[in-house]
């Protein structure tokens, strides 16, 4: 996994609550056996006027000019502002994959669905929870200012505005450690292989039917 450092990025607003994983990446694109290439189908049904199917050439498709991410001013956005319960629905990691592949590195919302939240960390996409009030302010600012950027400092756990207001956020120590150092969780867990074996042995004795 890539290391996550401080960075400054363009912000795009997604001003609706309960954005679900079917909207983030519609199921026809889940047929892929690859991990990459989902970015062009992020928010497919909102983003294009025609119906998308795997294998279509995105450059030949008609985009929906009304859709927020299609507006010229949000091209190249790396930070997505969102509303409550972002990422609800399925466990598909294709949702964070598609956001990351599109170019997003941070999503800021007042709340996330549990599985989605978890999946983001696994691939180095940072979900940040800020209060609704703060998000209201940020939504207003991004809509009012062309080229509005935020600086995200994971080490300091803060989101910083151009007018130098800083909002702190919480992040689990272990997850932060993994992100900042770009660590592979499986490798870390395997360092405890002996402990796992010991546990398994004990379990086998107590509940042998689980190992039949």
């Amino acid at each position: 996994m890539e290391k996550f450092n401080t960075f400054n990025g363009l912000v795009a607003p997604m001003d609706r609550a309960n954005v679900d994983t079917d909207a983030i990446i519609p199921k026809q694109f889940l047929k892929s056996i690859k991990r990459s290439g989902f970015g062009q189908n992020l928010f497919d049904e909102w983003r294009y006027l025609d119906h998308g199917e795997p294998g279509m050439d995105a450059s030949q498709r008609q985009t929906n000019p009304e859709f927020v991410l299609n507006k010229p001013r949000y091209q190249g956005a790396e930070i997505l502002l969102a509303r409550a319960n972002f990422g609800c629905g399925s466990s598909r990691e294709h949702a964070p994959w598609s956001l990351q592949d599109y170019g997003f590195r941070v999503i800021i919302a007042p709340s996330f669905a549990d599985i989605f939240f978890n999946n983001c960390f696994k691939i180095g996409l940072l979900p940040i929870i800020l209060e609704e009030k703060i998000l209201d302010q940020l939504f207003e600012a991004v809509k009012a200012t062309d080229g509005y950027c935020l600086t995200v400092d994971l080490e300091a756990q803060s989101v910083n505005t151009p007018d130098e207001i800083s909002f702190g956020f919480e992040v689990d120590t272990f997850r932060k450690h993994c992100l900042v150092n770009g660590l592979d969780e499986i490798g870390l867990t395997l360092q405890k292989a002996d402990k796992i074996k010991q546990f398994e042995q004990q379990r086998r004795e107590q509940q042998p039917w689980l190992y039949a």
Binding site: P96, T189, I196
Partner: peptide, 18 residues
């Protein structure tokens, strides 16, 4: 409970989840 693909790999490799 449901898990994402990275966690599927984690369980395959370690029989555990963090």
């Amino acid at each position: 409970f449901g898990i994402g693909t990275s966690e599927v790999e984690h369980v395959l490799a370690t029989q555990c989840l963090l």
